[in-house]
Design a protein around this nucleic acid. Structure first.
Lengths: 224, 224
DNA sequence: AAAAATTTTTAGGTTTGTCTAAATTTATTT
DNA sequence: AAATAAATTTAGACAAACCTAAAAATTTTT
């Protein structure tokens, strides 16, 4: 099934709105919300909904709302997979800051080669979490169960892999850069100082250093 | 200047046709040739030429042919730069075979972020030649003067960097994979056996090995 | 349960990039 | 230099994706 960039954007937005939606209403999305999300007008949304219905990607009854069916959901997950893998690439390989990658990944995600995504995934080491801490769906559209915890909760001497950072202000980025902490960094807690809850941490190939409780609480690690 | 994917493809094709054209005619391109190259019809080309003229990217007088002006040429070189950097990435980092990357790079080249290309270039080590042996324009649209020579011509004990391969048949790819030779490999000639002109070569982190004259003549190296 | 407000859809247009078919212009034969 | 052929352009249409404005359906208010 070959989808246009526009169709893909609609599918992705519907997916995100469904997730955010009240499940009690059956995760049905409404036209205005989608129009707002996509920065377009309600009339345009209706046009596209008709097309997505004929392509059998959504369930849609006019005036009654709409939602992705199984095929649509799988399509959305595949697009999200591409988006998040590219974000991971941009941050971990090209050295972009977290907050700059979304717009670029938004373009890259529409490059459709299966082979490309397969090889990119392998090259990146099959990451499970993107730089914002969101899970990356696997080839089969399955979302990994993320055992992401606050660095503060990591048991002493156990290795965690930095998966995301809560505060993405330039100040925080500067500090993390200084400590050499980035997405994917292997990190261990050597000691907790009870006085102020600061932590002595150890990163691979770097001397141990101390970070404040405040910093630690903004760092999330992947830990199995 | 924000160009659509279609406009970019036209600009790129005109550039390539101009290069291939007889310079005696002033490198002027004709409508049918462009239509054929772009897999479209002459009428569509005429439509687009009008638009590219109003955007001041080409010189165009109806019935008299057309060519890129300075602005158009710079635009073309920027697109070609993106294309070739992506091809380099796909081969050297993701492990694609040379002959599979063109179609994918054709999509990636339209992702427009300047920052992305700048960082990609740095990440790849500012390559000068793409996997097909074609030069990669620099940020300012200057084409590097390529000192690409046949491996056979590389002076004994001097290091060359593999830049391209003449024969891209699966058989050749298999053989190169076996020897661990790829684009970017650092290669040295230890010895030439006069008997059959076979070469003893040495690659970084690999034991010396011997390749036939026939193989050597299909390998091109960058050497300064 | 009417009236009012909101949401959604339809109707009819616009732009981009394409097309076919016909009309022009240029080039080549004879 | 006509006649013929080839290349190019115009004219008019079409699909995709968007728009505005008006109509229809639903929901909320009174």
């Amino acid at each position: 099934m070959n989808l246009s960039t526009s169709e893909e954007n609609y599918i992705k937005s519907i997916y995100h709105l469904q997730l955010a939606a009240d499940t009690s209403t059956g995760s049905v999305v409404n036209t205005n919300a989608l129009a707002k999300q996509l920065n377009t007008k309600a009339a345009s949304v209706t046009d596209m909904l008709k097309k997505l219905k004929t392509k059998k990607l959504i369930q849609y009854e006019r005036y009654y709302g709409f939602k992705l069916n199984e095929k649509g959901t799988q399509t959305a997950l595949s697009i999200i997979r591409r988006h998040r893998l590219w974000e991971y690439f941009l941050v971990s390989k090209l050295g972009f800051d977290w907050d700059k990658v979304h717009i670029i990944a938004e373009e890259l995600e529409h490059v459709s080669s299966m082979e490309l995504i397969k090889k990119l995934d392998t090259y990146l080491g099959n990451p499970k979490i993107d730089p914002h801490g969101d899970p990356i769906p696997d080839v089969n559209g399955r979302l990994p169960v993320i055992k992401q915890i606050n660095l503060f909760m990591l048991p002493l001497k156990k290795t965690g892999i930095v998966s995301s950072v809560g505060n993405q202000s330039p100040q925080m980025l500067e500090m993390l850069k200084h400590y050499g902490i980035g997405i994917g960094s292997q990190i261990k807690i050597n000691k907790v100082f009870d006085f102020d809850n600061s932590l002595e941490i150890k990163l691979v190939k770097q001397p141990a250093c101390i970070i404040s409780e405040q910093v630690a609480k903004n760092i999330f690690v992947y830990h199995d």
